[in-house]
């Protein structure tokens, strides 16, 4: 972004990478896949790079409003300095926080989750599924993220994106408004679960496996971790893969 600003250019959209997309080895692949899609579609985008900080979501959900607001305020300062108007992110938690909670602190942007953005690119014909891996005959099930679904009523965009793959889309018993959480939200990602008889991601992975899908599609870095761990726990790593929407589209595009 700093580079673009120095050349007096303005991006079409700012890609908010998020901490998982920047640091988590698994999710960095999603970041790269999404960037490849954006490049191929000719989207003029920028990233903040090292000037980006956590949106503060995990702190706020855990109850630490102070840390949240410190992070949020400094992010808003950076975003406003570059005159950012539109943001896309691959993380539903970043998406929710930027879209719904930054306005209270003076940060007003048009914020889009990458599922919606991908759907728009597909609808506009800027992303064409050809030349890559074919998904015909493959069974895919989509795991709704709480912060995309119930929190922000986005249920259809990720499914439209998956439909473009021409795969066999199967639903879990609990989906859309009834979708079951992966177990990571609300700060749970960063602590051990409270005592109980089962881990939430195991409950969810059992449901996903019951669909007979060979691919579990996710749209959230936390869900990615939880679902991947669930598959490992059930020793199904070779038969069942967990991918983000962007990775599936990139594969189909041959990127």
């Amino acid at each position: 972004m700093a580079e673009m600003a120095a050349n007096n250019e303005a991006p079409e959209v700012l890609f908010w990478v998020g901490c998982a997309g920047s640091f988590d080895d698994r999710y960095k692949k999603v970041t790269v896949a999404f960037v490849k899609i954006l490049n191929k579609a000719g989207v003029k985008f920028a990233v903040l790079g090292t000037e980006e900080s956590c949106t503060g979501d995990p702190a706020r959900r855990a109850g630490n409003e102070f840390t949240f607001q410190m992070l949020a305020m400094s992010n808003i300062q950076v975003l406003d300095m570059y005159g950012i108007k539109k943001i896309v992110t691959a993380c539903p938690h970043c998406f929710n926080t930027l879209k719904n909670e930054y306005p209270q602190l003076g940060g007003h942007y048009e914020v889009i989750h990458h599922s919606t953005f991908l759907q728009q690119l597909i609808d506009e014909g800027r992303v064409r599924i050809e030349g890559g891996e074919t998904f015909k005959g493959k069974k895919i099930t989509f795991h709704d993220s709480c912060y995309l679904g119930r929190a922000n009523n986005i249920y259809e965009a990720p499914r439209h994106v998956l439909e473009a793959l021409d795969a066999d889309l199967v639903e879990m018993k609990r989906c859309r408004t009834k979708g079951l959480c992966c177990g990571a939200g609300g700060g749970q990602m960063f602590k051990e679960p409270e005592p109980g008889k089962k881990d939430i991601n195991i409950e969810r992975i059992e449901e996903a496996l019951a669909t007979g899908a060979d691919t579990i599609a996710v749209a959230c870095p936390f869900c990615m971790v939880m679902m991947t761990d669930g598959v490992k726990n059930k020793e199904k790593e070779s038969a069942v893969k967990v991918y983000d929407l962007a990775e599936l589209i990139a594969q189909a595009e041959g990127l």
Partner: peptide
Amino acid sequence: QAPWKFSPGDRFNWA
């Protein structure tokens, strides 16, 4: 500025 123990300077290494 990240929930994990990573150096902020490494934030752009994915690229």
